[in-house]
Nucleic acid binder design. Structure first.
Length: 432
RNA sequence: GUGGCCGUAGCUCAGCUGGUAGAGCCCUGGAUUGUGAUUCCAGUUGUCGUGGGUUCGAGCCCCAUCGGUCACCCCA
């Protein structure tokens, strides 16, 4: 392919056209970045508290990995994947639409469960070619949390409780926990057939959407918002009723632990997840404050995926957090994070300008965060910049101070006396 | 993939039945020598998303296109 063929024809037609980010791909600007970091830092801390270990996995995997794990007939695989053929060797590759598949691949590849169960987490961008709307971008960010080798309900509950703690630490309230058990593969297949049989007796009531789902995902019909189908959905056979004893006990176990932990939940029998690999416990944390995209975290058990991807049979449980949505929710709650340097170093005068650079380094050596005013300007304008920078103190360096190796410290965030001191004393004055 | 609404200054927006482009915020300078965020004064802000069309004349009307936004679907 030639260079001219490679260039975007729409852009190259008009000269000097400004580039724009691709639809659904966006910049997180410095204004928003501190709040993102607060979110990420808080999550890291909480995950650490629970003994989850970080793993960093690629953004690109082989297409087949996602087809096998997410499911051939899911929306993600059928129409949302950024997939292409590597022009150098013909491999079919895909930008990851979710993280679990790659994580399982890594666990199997490096045999991470060799010494027993592991708890893992990762963070980063995911890619789905969907239409954008509030809380949904084509490149979006998730924290993925996965536990491998744990069979018992305590891990399911642990992950849910971990999330409850995260919301608490972030200052997010009023998020609802919905849980359900969708059974093992066999139980679900049975139930699926039961459901198809049931709805096929009532096709006169089903709308177009439901008729389509009857073939693709009959469990989703129960979720219909069509009021005309409300009655028939209510009367439909319940998934819970077709679950085996072991599955029910597992679900009971999760519920009891949640109760004991004081985490409120709502059993939602219609809660099914869009990815094929889930079984038994599924859950979502939902908010009503973000419009249509209310799920801020969701996950569940996927006991057969590891084996399906070539590993030894290993039970597993995990979830994803939609960081954009949590971020929006934090904004909704007025949660803020500001960058506040300790010092903004104002420097006016020939000698002062000469010494300021070195003086800033000295203060940084002492452990302070120091923004050096660069580029000259009047005293007044420098003070204005100091104010804008959100710094706690303006360190004023004029020729008087410079000659003596001193600075004048003026508090900017609260009222207080301006004091003149040696550069070496700045740290102890500010940090006391 | 489908539909509603919207694109005017860095930001938030006004702009009448078509008649040369506006406000606030921000930014810059000043209100007697080196003190910010408040106040007062002055000043800079633009291919009106893009490309066509109608018209003597288009920010405004028409078509196309791109983008934003919200929703369906689906999901984090």
């Amino acid at each position: 392919m030639s260079a001219s063929q490679l260039s975007n024809s729409k852009v190259s037609q008009t000269k000097n056209t400004k580039f724009q980010s691709i639809k659904g791909f966006y910049d997180i600007l410095p204004e928003d970045s501190p709040l993102w970091q607060k979110l990420e830092d808080t999550a890291r801390r909480v995950l650490n508290q629970y003994g989850y270990r970080n793993i960093r996995i690629p953004i690109v995997e082989s297409t087949e990995l996602f087809v096998r794990s997410v499911g051939e007939h899911t929306d993600i695989v059928e129409k949302e994947m950024y997939a292409w053929t590597d022009s150098l060797n013909g491999d079919s590759l895909t930008l990851r639409p979710e993280g679990t598949a790659g994580c399982v691949r890594a666990v199997v590849e490096s045999n991470l469960t060799y010494n027993g169960p592991v708890r893992l987490w990762y963070m980063g961008p995911m890619f789905r070619h969907e239409n954008v709307q509030k809380g949904r971008q084509r490149q979006f960010h998730q924290i993925g949390v996965e536990a491998f080798g744990y069979r018992t309900p305590d891990v399911d509950a642990e992950q849910i409780v971990l999330l409850a703690r995260l919301w608490r630490e972030l200052g997010i309230e009023d998020v609802e926990l919905q849980i359900n058990s969708i059974g093992d593969a066999v139980e679900r297949t049975q139930y699926r057939q039961t459901l198809i049989d049931y709805f096929e007796q009532h096709t006169d009531v089903l709308d177009e959407d439901a008729m389509r789902r009857l073939q693709t995902n009959p469990l989703r019909i129960l979720d219909s918002k069509n009021p005309k189908m409300q009655a028939i959905c209510e009367a439909a056979p319940k998934l819970m009723d077709s679950l085996g004893n072991e599955t029910r006990m597992h679900f009971e176990g999760v519920c009891v632990l949640l109760k004991d932990a004081g985490v409120a939940y709502k059993v939602n029998p219609r809660l099914v997840r869009g990815l094929d690999y889930y079984n038994r416990t599924v859950f979502e944390w939902v908010t009503t404050k973000l419009g249509a995209q209310g799920t801020i975290a969701g996950g569940g058990r996927y006991d057969s995926l590891v084996e399906r991807l070539g590993g030894d049979a290993t039970p597993a449980c995990g979830f994803g957090i939609g960081l954009e949505r949590v971020f929006l929710l934090m904004q909704e709650y007025g949660i803020v994070a500001n960058e506040t340097p300790d010092v903004y170093l104002v420097n006016v005068g020939e000698l002062a300008e000469k010494k300021a650079f070195d003086m800033a380094e000295t203060m940084r050596n002492a452990g302070l965060s120091v923004v050096l005013h660069a580029g000259g300007g009047s005293f007044k304008s420098q003070m204005k910049k100091a104010d804008k920078s959100n710094a706690r103190y303006a360190a004023i360096l004029g020729d008087d101070e410079a000659a003596l190796g001193e600075v004048s410290l003026k508090p900017l965030l609260e009222v207080g006396e301006q004091v003149k001191c040696k550069v070496s004393d700045v740290f102890s004055i500010i940090k006391r």
